[in-house]
């Protein structure tokens, strides 16, 4: 369990990882930006890299952002919200009864 699992902290981490991947300043990665060509234009490798980095960072399992099963995960905010809900699920599962 990370101490930085508030939605705000997750938002920041997602923005930072995307900025690193795109080699652009973090200010250019807005929360409502879409991942596809109409927004950040992350290519398939960047999406997979982001996927894996976030799974590793938060010790959770995420759907592949480039696959059809993750159709709803189309913006930075959507990724952060998904991560927050996955962390909440895994914390609930791991809690003592």
């Amino acid at each position: 369990m990370h101490s930085d699992t508030t939605l705000e902290a997750i938002n920041l981490t997602v923005c930072r990882l995307i900025a690193e991947s795109l080699q652009r300043p973090i200010e250019e990665v807005r929360l409502d930006a879409s991942l596809d060509d109409s927004g950040l234009a992350l290519d398939s490798l960047s999406l997979v890299t982001l996927n894996v980095a976030l799974e590793e960072r938060y010790d959770i399992t995420l759907p592949d952002f480039i696959s059809e099963e993750a159709r709803t995960v189309r913006s930075v905010r959507a990724i952060a919200e998904l991560i927050a809900s996955r962390i909440a699920e895994s914390t609930k599962e791991g809690a003592p009864v």
């Binding site: 894996v52 799974e55 590793e56 592949d64």
Partner: peptide
């Protein structure tokens, strides 16, 4: 290396799918 494995295997899985 876990990142390399998971990344390349994810790309491969999607390509075959």
């Amino acid at each position: 290396f876990s990142r390399v494995l998971q990344s390349y295997m994810t790309i491969a899985r999607l390509s075959f799918a």
